[in-house]
Design a binder for these strands. Sequence first.
RNA 1: GCCGCGAUAGCUCAAUUGGCAGAGCAACUGAUUUGUAAUCAGUAGGUUGCUGGUUCGAUUCCGGUUCGCGGCACCA
Length: 631
Amino acid sequence: MLLIYEGKEFEVASPLNGFEAAKILDPSKKNKAIAVKQNGRLTDMNVSVEEGEIEFVLPDSPEGFEMINHSCSHLMAQAILRLYPQAKFGFGPAIEEGFYYDVDFGDVVLTDKDFPAIEAEMKKIVKENIPFRRKEVSKEEALALFADNPYKIERIQELEGTISVYEQGEFKDLCRGPHVPSTGYLKHFRLLSLAGAYWRGDSKNKMLTRIYATCYPTEESLKEHLETLERRKANDHRRLGKELGLFMLSDYAPGMPFFLPKGQIVYNELLSYWREIHQKYGYSEITTPTMMSRELWETSGHWDHYKDNMYTTKVDEADYAIKPMNCPGAILVYQNGIHSYRDLPLRYAELGHVHRHEASGALNGLFRVRAFTQDDAHILIRRDQIEEEVKSIMKLMDEVYDVFGLTYRIVLSTRPDDYIGEIEFWNQSEEALASACRDSGHDFQINPGDGAFYGPKLDFKLRDSMGRTWQCGTIQLDVNLPHRFGCFYIDESGNKVEPVMLHRVVFGSVERFLGILIENYGGAFPTWLAPVQVEILPVNNDAHLEYASEVLAELQGMKVRAEIDSSNEKLGYRLRQAVVSKIPYTLVIGDKEKENHLVTYRIYGQKEQITVSLEEFKALISESISKKLRY
RNA sequence: GCCGCGAUAGCUCAAUUGGCAGAGCAACUGAUUUGUAAUCAGUAGGUUGCUGGUUCGAUUCCGGUUCGCGGCACCA
């Protein structure tokens, strides 16, 4: 039979399994291959290969990584079963950075103090080098095999045809496979954390114990991953926010952040940039009330849908709600006048401070809060303007995200089952969003059926410097709200026509975006955002304070946020303070600088000291700020 | 909201089996006037989240509660 491997043809004896094929086709990799891939299908190494093109999957490929993690979840389950014979297993899939297994431990409460014992048992099984064996069984056989496990039974009931089961020694699991050849292939793993997770992700079901873990092809790559986890912890915005004095939370207002003086500066800089760019793109800023009457929320539909998550109150016998979103306010602004088709698009931007009573367990630093500011806009347009307007929004988003060095991918969510309106308009709208993406040169994924009931949407998933993704921007098409409020414009023939509304945010929540920025920059903000931009250090307070004050005055005169540290400490100490505070520019002022009207600066994170004239430094920092450079 | 864990000085953390609550950093005072990541000495700082109980005695054991952490569910 003929096999093709890396473009070369090999005539081999058949039948032949993956191990044998590896031995012949690629002797150098035969010990590393963990699976065979043919015609896009992965199979176990001990399965016969077919005639045709063949590939070997190595543990350090993306597919290989998923496989070793999936196999490792079986390994962990086997170890758990040896230590806890009563354990019943749910699902145990590979995930992006490792794997987990959901386990019902009965009355036993597991803690992370039990991890070492489980890891030790896993290592024993690795040493035993037990092969993973695939077995195909009928549904009846499968039900008999897993008779003592209600979770597996529930899953088997849903399956049709033959069912594959993997066995390693005394342990068996329901699984599609494939798996690594034997447990000896899994050496570099670590149990990470423990969590509760509802069976099948449904809060009505029993909660199982989920163990998160990870497995890497080598000890070095595992170590590297664990270091990444540490680095993420060090960059956690909650920790940095405290260390750098940016924001705080209080027991008196859970989930409602307080911005401290330094954090408020960053916040204000973000907003002033936001105002600047929205002005450039033809938006008009509005402000609508924080609290509006029940009738308004009934008209918008929010009262019925979200009453439990809204803060409500009674004033003079009437019900009121604190706004959970800004749309109805924008609609009222629109209805304050009569609009011609020539007036559209009308772009109402609003930095709206909204309150949502999020579940207590959902709160997380600035990422998930109960009070936050949406950088909202509601754009009223004619149906024929959708595509062009979406393109304009995307251009604005590109410009904004680029300033922060954030890249993104786009997801288009389409018509759900419970949609309202005409199918034809849905199709047109989805196509308008898609073609706006294509025309502005962006790829997008489709998330079928995930749109809101009132219209399709584009979501922007940002990627930060640590490779994590965040949903920030979104563009949502809405025909529902204008209809509910009876909005109209006058067309060419003098008829009243319902406009379409676009909801969109760029930052999403300003608080959350700030949290992302803190983590993305590791707390070391670019100059334009930094709370203190320049720290001035006189070498000797008696001799140099006067010139240092002159430098300070010059910088403050051009609105640079500068300060002098004239405390009675050694230069090294004060320099360290500036570095720990992550201040972008540190200026040292001594005899040399004073004599010749110079400054010596050092940029955050750099060792190099540069001496320039004060004039040059002023030009330098003013360029850094106005062009929003990192430094 | 659910499962698990936690809460001690401004911050980061200690405190054998229940027996006078400690350290480093920060703060304050004094000396030192300093050329690129921590000068020295001293002082002060706490109803151990709150609340009930057990006990001669509770930071420690038990219950409740608030807030936080890791997840799950939720996210207009």
